[in-house]
Design a protein around this nucleic acid. Structure first.
Lengths: 214, 214
DNA sequence: TTAAAAATCCCCGAAAAAGGGGAGCCCTCT
DNA sequence: AGAGGGCTCCCCTTTTTCGGGGATTTTTAA
């Protein structure tokens, strides 16, 4: 049973592990929107626990959290409370992160390198139910939307083997660990090279890490 | 003592590409130390240019800058103005970064994950001419002398070749580019494997990236 | 000035990866 | 029922890396 039509102050959940940033966000919100209740969570786990039984008008979410990714946080939060309005506030200006965040159900995405007005505008829009993507973000989304520069689609098995390759295991060692033939591992390895457009293992590992897959 | 007894306002240079953070730092400083003059630089180049002809009592410095590393900024700044008091305020809690920063001449190092009191204490100490290392930082520094987990010492040539390896070049290709024999590249490669305690190229690239060398 | 460190080059053989091909099995989705 | 994707496995050859030595010259620093 909700108590509606009461002039209650807005409730904001800030999931951010840098006190200096969450502090600044709280001030910005209070100055811009008047009386608000800002709850601060330094970890994803705490943030999720605060969601239980409490209503929040907006969640400001960092991607780099100590215990989990902000993407995972959003997925879990939205699966339990689909109506949540989430605005990502992060320093990571990478295409694949934006893509994943959108897929996880965020309503907005702004960068910490952005002007403060850009961030407050994001908060305003998302709180109003609209989606909002900051200046630096829109460029990234438009630029490579169609081109093949985006993240390659790899299967579960391939990503499993990719991690083992990056850990320095040979085809035979991976085969022994996964109870398959080294020929199979070799096939996966070759597919990975093609999918990542890499010439050899070294380049494969580097690009996989840079794209956030490892 | 109150702020009226202060002879002149302190001058602070904040080199930090996140407006939300530099804004918060400015507020913290003003609230804690009374009237101060905070100059804000979003890039290392701008920060260096502000140093010319201006005196600053303290520099608050981020490591992740758009145009250069905070380490490089500090080296360049200290070479021109040796008396500068630099406090690093960053989110990077890695040993090798702290080591390099100290070597570059910073007087203090605090983490953005730290409590705000910790950061203001760092500012206070460094401004007074003392050195200060925040809570999370001291822990990282202690494990230094004993553990062999720290960053391997590699030479200039080795790091040059390491980057080319990570880019997917073979020994022969690297040899052609550097005008040396592929045997030489092979020697460097073997030394890198030993120094990084890596079994093969894949593991080498991964650990090199994780240690921030690439 | 002299010793250490770095950079250069070479040998060998064994192991692994890369490049190319083909093929069967299982599951899902239409 | 057929198509496609994912996973599995195998063949071949060539290239590259890895492991293990050794050796010379150039820098660098004490």
């Amino acid at each position: 049973m909700n108590s509606q039509t009461l002039p209650v102050s807005k409730r904001v959940l800030i999931v951010e592990d840098h006190p200096i940033v969450s502090d600044s966000l709280s001030r910005m919100i209070t100055e811009t929107f008047g009386d608000t209740i800002c709850v601060h969570a330094a970890t994803g786990a705490k943030g999720l626990s605060y969601l239980n039984g409490n209503h929040f008008d907006i969640i400001l979410l960092d991607i780099n959290l100590p215990d989990m990714s902000g993407i995972d946080f959003c997925s879990q939060a939205k699966s339990r409370f689909p109506g949540l309005q989430v605005l990502v506030v992060t320093s990571l200006a990478q295409r694949h992160i934006i893509d994943r965040a959108v897929q996880a159900g965020v309503k907005g995405f702004v960068l910490k390198t952005s002007d403060i007005k850009d961030i407050t505008e994001g908060i305003r829009q998302v709180m109003a139910g609209n989606s909002y993507f900051g200046t630096g973000v829109r460029n990234l989304m438009e630029g490579h939307s169609v081109s093949g520069t985006s993240e390659p689609v790899i299967t579960r098995r391939e990503s499993e083997i990719l991690r083992l390759i990056a850990d320095g295991l040979t085809n035979q060692e991976i085969a022994d660990r996964l109870y398959i033939s080294s020929s199979t591992v070799d096939s996966h390895r070759k597919n990975l090279l093609v999918k990542f457009n890499s010439k050899n293992t070294a380049a494969l590992v580097k690009t996989a890490i840079s794209k956030g897959i490892i």
